[in-house]
Amino acid sequence: MYDLHMHTILSDGELLPMELVRRAAVLGYDTIAITDHADASNLAHLVETVAAIRDSARYYGVDLLAGVELTYVPPPLIPALARDAKRLGADIVVVHGETVVEPVAPGTNHAACTCEYVDVLGHPGLITVEDARAAAAHGIALEITSRAGHNRTNGHVVRVAREAGCPLTVDSDTHAPSDLLSKEARQAVALGAGLTEAESREILFRDRKQLLQK
């Protein structure tokens, strides 16, 4: 199993990075990404800090990806900041999408979907088909999320992704221990979003590294 969107005490989460790794390992995850909230003020610190425990995570059988979630960044600045994150060594760049429950700046989805350095658009809200097509062209996945509030538009995201031929990822957006998903819970999120059994199996268990190899 994988989860590409998780938070720790490095931003607004409750767990130390290694505690998050251990709890995920016990649940059966073999790949997780720590993607704490980032802007220009903390980008380098987040990437460096998480990268420092990659080797420790392997003791628990977890491939740890050092990442960031660009959050509330003005849309014109997203491409340069995403590029900087990759140059600093980030394995994955998530952008905090235009969820319907937060005042994310309009144009954030478009900026993320047209950026070659972005890997996942988190909780993209009422994303347009045009932006989803741009995401597909750039190899960017749209997120199906279990996080309360953000998950209100999961069904819309699935429908748009199908029409646009855009890849999907199922993530928890974990902030606390109770947010971590079991295998059964992940399947329920996927099916509840409107994915078929076959689509759910393919999305939930395929090799996430293929998504990140642009």
Rank of each mutant, 00 (worst) to 15 (best):
V94L: 10
N42S: 04
K86A: 08
H138T: 03
A38S: 14
D207E: 11
L81V: 06
A111R: 00
R147S: 13
G107V: 08
H5R: 03
A188Y: 03
V118I: 11
L195G: 12
A148Q: 10
K214T: 11
V93H: 15
G97R: 07
I34K: 00
V21K: 04
C115H: 02
R22G: 00
A193R: 05
G194A: 11
S41W: 00
A134L: 07
M6Y: 00
V50L: 02
P106W: 01
A132K: 01
A141D: 12
Q213K: 14
E143C: 07
E102Y: 08
G165L: 07
G67Y: 00
K214W: 14
C113P: 07
H123L: 10
L204Y: 11
G107C: 11
I9D: 07
H156V: 10
L191D: 13
L20D: 03
A82H: 08
E202S: 11
D179I: 06
L126G: 04
K209Y: 10
R206I: 04
D131R: 06
V62G: 04
A40S: 15
A80C: 01
V100L: 14
E163Q: 14
E19A: 09
L43T: 07
V189Q: 06
L15N: 01
A190S: 13
P177K: 00
E130V: 12
V120P: 00
I92N: 04
G28L: 02
L81G: 01
V95D: 07
S146N: 12
H96W: 08
A112F: 11
I127L: 14
E98K: 05
A44T: 11
V157T: 15
Y117N: 13
V100Q: 14
G89S: 05
R133K: 15
K214D: 13
V73P: 01
L191C: 09
E69S: 06
P75Q: 09
D119C: 10
N109P: 03
L27N: 01
S11Y: 08
A161R: 07
A44L: 02
L212C: 09
